[in-house]
Nucleic acid binder design. Structure first.
Length: 114
DNA sequence: GGGTTGACCTGTG
DNA sequence: ACACAGGCCAACC
C-alpha cells in the first residue's frame, strides 16, 4: 500500500479490531500495519479522521498508557470518559497496559523486541 | 523547497 | 520518577 489514503484505511481497519475494553499504542498499530517506526504516522491518520467514520480512535493511547491529547482538553476528557465507560481503569491518569493492552498473541507479548 | 510542529518511541543519565 | 536527545514522518506554513 503505497498510496497514503490506502494506508490510512489500513490503519483504521486495524484500529477497528481493537476490542471494547482494550487499548493499543500507536506503535503497535504501526507495527501491525507493517510500518517500521510509524507511530507518528498513526497519530496523523487518527487526527485526520472524520468524526462520521465509526473508528474507535479513543482506544489508541501512547506507549506509556497515557492519553496523547493535550492534557485537560475537551477531547482528552472525552477520550477518558469513553474508555472508562468501556471498563478501562485509570490510575494516576495512566492505563495499565499489561492488563488492558490489546495484544495480538501471546507471542507478541513474550517476544517484544528489546 | 526548507523549517517547524506534533494524538510517537526508545535509550540514556 | 524525570528530562533530554535522537530518530521518525506527514502536514502545514
Amino acid at each position: 500500500m503505497h498510496n497514503p489514503q490506502e494506508l490510512d484505511e489500513l490503519l483504521y481497519a486495524i484500529v477497528r479490531q481493537i476490542p471494547r475494553g482494550k487499548v493499543a499504542a500507536y506503535g503497535w498499530i504501526a507495527e501491525r500495519a507493517g510500518l517500521v517506526r510509524g507511530a507518528r504516522r498513526v497519530g496523523h491518520a487518527l487526527r485526520m479522521l472524520s468524526s462520521r467514520r465509526r473508528v474507535p480512535w479513543h482506544r489508541v493511547v501512547n506507549a506509556q498508557g497515557r492519553i496523547s491529547l493535550p492534557a485537560g482538553s475537551a477531547a482528552a476528557r472525552r477520550q477518558q470518559e469513553i474508555l472508562q465507560a468501556e471498563g478501562i481503569v485509570f490510575k494516576n491518569h495512566r492505563i495499565d497496559l499489561m492488563r488492558f493492552g490489546w495484544r495480538q498473541s501471546l507471542d507478541e507479548l513474550l517476544w517484544r523486541q528489546p
